[in-house]
């Protein structure tokens, strides 16, 4: 994934104009475990959304596996997200009418995976994420930590090349945060999946192999 001269302006040419991102140039290699960090309003979530195609950059180019994706149509971008990107949101965001098992298998079913493969993958992830005993429960019956683990399982189930996680630990206590990070780390190492976080959680930063610090929409540190 490569970002070239990415700028994002909200409410352009109006008194409310906000320059959220200013000339961002970054690249992410396969298997990275990176955190975009910074104060509130520094642009980390905006950048994560642009990387995931959930928001469009005002200018600049984005390349995914060498192909420019910044000019993709909504439909093409949705297809790219479905096939290659897994999302973990701050508020878990599971589908309430589906059981844990169905939530985990949701994307795989959209991608028309074989039912046997889907079930095997669900069991495998349930074992890694320690959610075997809640597979037939509905999200409303789960704790926050359990819901976030299910969200992680859903994001990684179809083996995407990239996982984007926006403040995944924000609603979790320290014990659950630690557990979640360890699991993501295991998945990153085991399945060579690239993980990019947007977070200012110290524990997340400590666990990351690379930290990119943003301030006022610009990269100020990358180590």
């Amino acid at each position: 994934m490569k970002l070239s001269h990415i700028c994002k302006t909200f409410y352009p040419d109006s008194p409310k104009e906000i320059k959220a991102l200013k000339d961002i140039n970054l690249s992410f290699e396969k298997g990275e475990f990176t955190t975009l960090s910074g104060e509130s309003g520094s642009g980390k979530t905006t950048l994560l959304n642009i990387i995931g195609g959930l928001d469009a950059a005002t200018s600049g180019k984005i390349f995914f596996e060498g192909e420019e994706i910044s000019a993709y149509s909504e439909e093409k971008m949705a297809k790219l997200r479905l096939n290659h990107i897994g999302f973990i949101f701050q508020a878990y965001n599971l589908i309430q009418v589906l059981t844990v098992r169905e939530n985990i298998g949701f994307i795989m079913r959209l991608l028309k995976f074989d039912e046997v493969a889907i079930n095997a993958r669900i069991l495998e992830l349930a074992s890694i994420l320690q959610i075997e005993d809640i597979l037939d429960k509905l999200p409303s019956e789960l704790s926050g930590g359990q819901q976030q683990r299910v969200a992680v399982a859903r994001a990684v189930a179809s083996r995407p090349k990239l996982i984007l996680a926006d403040e995944p630990t924000a609603n979790l206590d320290s014990k659950n945060s630690e557990r979640l990070m360890q699991m993501l780390r295991t998945l990153n190492e085991k399945e060579q999946v690239t993980v990019i976080f947007a977070s200012h959680d110290r524990y997340v930063l400590e666990q990351s192999k690379r930290v990119i610090v943003l301030s006022d929409g610009a990269v100020v540190e990358d180590h």
Binding site: G52, L54, E75, A78, K79, L80, R81, L82, N83, I85, G86, F87, F89, N93, I95, F106, I107, L110, R154, A155
Partner: peptide, 8 residues
Amino acid sequence: IMLAIGTP
């Protein structure tokens, strides 16, 4: 959420 994770 469904649209964000790639549901057409």
